[in-house]
Amino acid sequence: MPDTLHHILHVEDDPAIRRIVALALGRVGGFEVRSAESGAEALHMLSQALPQLLLLDVMMPDMDGPMLLSQLRARDDTATLPVMFMTAKGSDDERAHLRQLGAVAVLEKPFDPMTLAAVVRQHWAAQT
């Protein structure tokens, strides 16, 4: 795994937040960010090219974040793909549960768009 983080795939059903994250990580953070609006789209995009990090919303219709993660873990090419969750669910139990699923980090919503990239970078550095 390369040391420097460039390619991030963001999966989020809310278009406004998709746009804000793209700006916060892309324009402010300088990452290459692609966005998917659902788990299905994310799977499709992952089959074309693998990012370095998957930033995953937890609550989504049809396929939520944890379901998508379990599918990725079952695939050879994405079995070890680093994943960070973004969640609006605040309880300790839920955060602990998400971490147990194998997430590198659990980021909270709302977030500060100006420091989001720094936070992501920090967690990335911590796990490598």
Binding site: D14, A16, I17, A24, S91, M114
Partner: peptide, 27 residues
């Protein structure tokens, strides 16, 4: 509580995100 927190935070994320980007000079 769980629903409210999610339903409140999602729009708040958008609002605060937009304002943060604008005020932060990203746009």
């Amino acid at each position: 509580v769980s629903t409210v927190s999610h339903e409140l935070r999602t729009p708040l994320t958008a609002i605060n995100g937009v304002l943060g980007l604008v005020n932060g000079g990203a746009l």
